[in-house]
């Protein structure tokens, strides 16, 4: 079993990384994960597996990551602090590493009130920052929280999320700096539609010298329709979709809106490639994994580089 993250090797090697997302099924069938794996294989460098996203019960992220591994894909295990206390989180980090999972993205998680278990207790024993710090301690010092020694340390590349579009803007970068100082080595951002705001955030990060301290992967999501764009703008937490993007989607007849969405996504990626400090992209094609291949191809990002 390889000890080093392939994603890390690519980024360290100066390659522009491409990651995508795979939401596990609301069921126990590994075939659903394998079908998505088939769509993403050789199109991207690693695949994020969401952890009961929007607080909806799905196949566990660790299990779905293992299915991806079996199909030859490199998973990025998303772990949220909403559902597990520090005992369970640390235990799952060890388990994930044992199974060959080499990337972990540490997140707070969508609030339980959004999902299909609104009566659930939100754990939030740690916040995402503290969790990042705990994983780094496990890996680098070989200790769990509180200092007790592990018999062997997990081998994981540590990631975190950032939302350049949430408020207050100045503090977004303070939080980014804190995540990096806690141990985040790669950052995946919220979906970028408002390029102006994203550039402002990047320049604030540059002022603080953060661009050299972590790999920033810009998040993109192809819009399926004008309706989806409006829904995301108004209903999805932390999303910033400027009116001109919505107008552009609206201006196209319904049957061509998917193509327009892919076009906007490709343009965004091409723009991101030109921004200093952006070291890759993260494509979140929500339940639309078959769009990823076309997006990556049209953005000139194929074939994906090999690592030894």
């Amino acid at each position: 079993m390889k000890d080093e993250s392939r994603l890390k090797q690519l980024l360290d090697g100066g390659h522009f990384a491409v990651t995508a997302e795979c939401g596990p099924p609301k069921g126990a069938d590994p075939g659903a994960v394998l079908r998505k794996a088939g769509l993403l294989k050789e199109k991207v460098d690693a695949v994020n597996v969401t952890d009961n996203q929007t607080a909806i019960v799905r196949m566990s992220s660790i299990a779905a990551c293992t299915v991806l591994l079996s199909a030859g894909l490199e998973p990025v295990l998303q772990m949220v602090v909403r559902d597990r206390n520090r005992i369970a989180l640390q235990s799952d980090v060890l388990g994930a590493s044992a199974l060959g999972i080499r990337n972990i993205l540490c997140l707070s998680g969508d609030h339980q009130s959004f999902g299909n278990q609104p009566s659930a207790l939100g754990v939030f024993d740690l916040d995402s920052m503290q969790f990042i710090e705990a994983v780094r301690g496990m890996r680098d010092a070989g200790t769990i929280m509180g200092g007790e020694q592990l018999t062997s340390a997990p081998a994981v590349f540590i990631g975190a999320a950032a939302n350049p579009f949430a408020d207050p803007l100045e503090f977004r970068v303070v939080r980014l700096a804190k995540k990096i100082s806690a141990g985040a080595e790669f950052i995946q951002t919220q979906c970028i539609y408002n390029m102006e705001r994203f550039k402002k955030w990047i320049s604030l990060a540059e002022d603080r010298g953060l661009l050299e301290k972590a790999y920033i992967l810009g998040g993109v999501t192809p819009l399926k329709s004008a309706g989806m764009a409006k829904y995301m703008k108004n209903k999805v937490a932390g999303m910033d979709i400027p009116d001109d993007v919505i107008k552009r989607m609206d201006a196209v007849p319904k049957e061509r809106q998917r193509q327009e969405g892919i076009g906007i996504c490709v343009e965004t990626i091409l723009a991101l490639k030109e921004i200093k400090g952006v070291k890759g992209i993260h494509i979140m094609a929500i339940e639309w994994e078959d769009a990823v291949g076309e997006i990556v191809e049209r953005a000139g990002l194929l074939p994906r580089p090999k690592v030894d």
Binding site: R82, S108, G109, H111, S113, F114, G122, F124, D127, S128, M129, Q130, A161, A162, N163, F165, A166, D167, P168, F171, R175, K178, Q190, A237, G238
Partner: peptide
């Protein structure tokens, strides 16, 4: 804070309002 964050704010903070409500 709806998520009890000690190192917030999370990505759902918008115009001084919480994403939960």
């Amino acid at each position: 804070c709806s998520k009890q964050l000690m190192n917030g704010p999370c990505g759902g903070s918008r115009e001084g309002r919480c994403e939960v409500d």
